[in-house]
Write a protein that binds this DNA or RNA. Structure first.
Length: 426
DNA sequence: TCTGGGGTCCTAGGACCC
DNA sequence: TCTGGGGTCCTAGGACCC
């Protein structure tokens, strides 16, 4: 009976998704570098990397790639071994601006665009061919050309019946590619795609699949659904369906930014065991995370913290807030109490990190009945005033005394905080 | 080349309850 | 102290993504 039941579910699912869709995926080519070159076209054709402020390569032009530079390579190495390469700091304001402009071009053709990341989006083009009096391929060609001509950015695009296949398509030719995958020819593409290249198949799964003699995406797609269910977890079932042309992942055109968690981490060198320093780093991270939470009018119910050792081992602890708050003073003192649970003497640490979890919108927050609310609200209104001061005068006008040490000896750069702010104040 | 920062989703297992 | 079965909720941690 199980079998029959399962089959009927499968059929229902198939019927729902029977109409073949045309899913579009667009991917910026070396996006950060692409924007830098759009800003300053004289760098076109030169080896360029970004990431100076982080100390590792974030993005690299195809010319830089040709020299053997890879993502994540330390900047000192680039400077030492490739003195002709232009090394730039990240300019996240510009990246956000170009990102918005790029997605707006797609919205000239379709209303619902899923902004998957700063340089990638999905859209469902199904049915737009007739009103636009163009084939799907022509629509995509136009989008690509407009991004290229109006923004000076190169993108690679693909269309396919599902999101996972559309990702395969946009990656097929890069840079500046346009690839169409249909149900009929999908197997040809998948047979030539290593399984590790598929969206959602990471290093662990690839290793496991190789032990089962699955080398290509085609090998994976040809397995029975039974086999997938018995050997892998749920997300891989979706990938299997999508590779076989059955749509299970929907386009999700979120209109506003919603976070379910907010994380701030910072690494430092030299690595250290100093309690005082580590607590100061925590304090800084907490201030940043809380500031972002206030910005989006979110309050966490839980806070988790971690220390990462020199050898990349993690120790973590989590704190459930008796009264949800995004006031850093409160969270700092709770973290100080918890600190010894994750800290050991004689171990060198490289990173501290904090995550605000179970975020809920501000207005539903409720405090306890014994005055917790009032003191928390007092903190919140103070911080709102600080936030508006900072907006007026620039970053970091005021910070907690506990953060002071962390503010010393820091390179000033454009970080993700600015990037978030700018998204809102654009 | 000794390796940054910010996210999401899923699962196994424990706590707790009847 | 050992004896059942079954359900829900929560949490920590893993895996993955850009």
């Amino acid at each position: 009976m199980d079998k029959v039941f399962q089959n009927s579910i499968l059929n229902d699912k198939k019927n729902n998704n029977l109409k073949t869709k045309v899913i579009f995926h667009m991917d910026g080519d070396a996006f950060f570098v692409g924007v830098e070159i759009a800003k300053n076209p004289s760098m076109k054709g030169l080896p360029v990397v970004t990431g100076e402020e982080r100390g590792i390569v974030s993005a690299l032009s195809y010319e830089a790639k040709a020299l053997g530079i890879i993502r994540g390579m330390p900047i000192y190495k680039v400077n030492r071994d490739f003195p002709n390469v232009l090394v730039l700091p990240g300019d996240y304001k510009s990246y956000a601006r170009y990102s918005t402009m790029m997605f707006d071009i797609v919205r000239r053709y379709v209303d619902d665009v899923e902004e998957y990341s700063i340089d990638e989006c999905f859209a469902d083009l199904t049915g737009f061919d007739l009103p636009l009096k163009m084939t799907y391929k022509q629509i995509v060609e136009r989008i690509k050309r407009e991004v290229n001509e109006e923004l000076g950015l190169s993108v690679s695009v693909g269309i396919a019946p599902t999101k996972v296949l559309a990702k395969v398509a946009s990656k097929w030719v890069k840079p500046n590619g346009l690839t169409v995958i249909e149900v009929g020819n999908a197997p040809d593409f998948l047979a030539k795609t290593p399984i590790a290249k598929i969206w959602g198949i990471g290093p662990k799964a690839s290793i496991f699949l190789k032990t089962k003699n699955i080398q290509t995406a085609g090998d994976f797609a040809n397995k029975s659904l039974e086999w997938i269910k018995n050997n892998l977890s749920k997300p891989y079932e979706s990938i299997w369906q999508e590779l076989n042309g059955v749509r299970v992942l929907e386009i999700d055109p979120k209109t506003k930014t919603v976070y379910s968690s907010i994380q701030k981490t910072r690494s430092f060198h030299p690595n250290t065991n100093s309690r005082e320093f580590l607590l100061s780093e925590f304090s800084k991270n907490i201030e940043d995370a809380c500031s972002k939470a206030r910005h989006y009018k979110l309050i966490p119910k839980k806070v988790s913290i971690f220390l990462k050792t020199k050898d990349f081992k993690f120790t973590t602890a989590s704190i459930t807030l008796s009264s949800p708050t995004n006031a850093p003073e409160t969270i700092v003192s709770l973290v100080i109490e918890k600190f010894d649970e994750i800290y050991s003497r004689g171990v060198l640490y490289r990173t501290t990190g904090i995550t605000l979890q179970d975020l809920m919108p501000n207005y539903v927050s409720q405090g306890d009945l014994f005055g917790g609310v009032e003191s928390v609200n007092k903190f919140e209104s103070i911080h709102n005033q600080i936030d508006s001061l900072e907006h007026k005068f620039g970053k970091k006008v005021l910070y907690l005394a506990s953060t002071q040490q962390a503010m010393k000896n820091r390179k000033v750069g454009t970080d993700y905080d600015d990037f978030d702010r700018d998204l809102l104040f654009l």
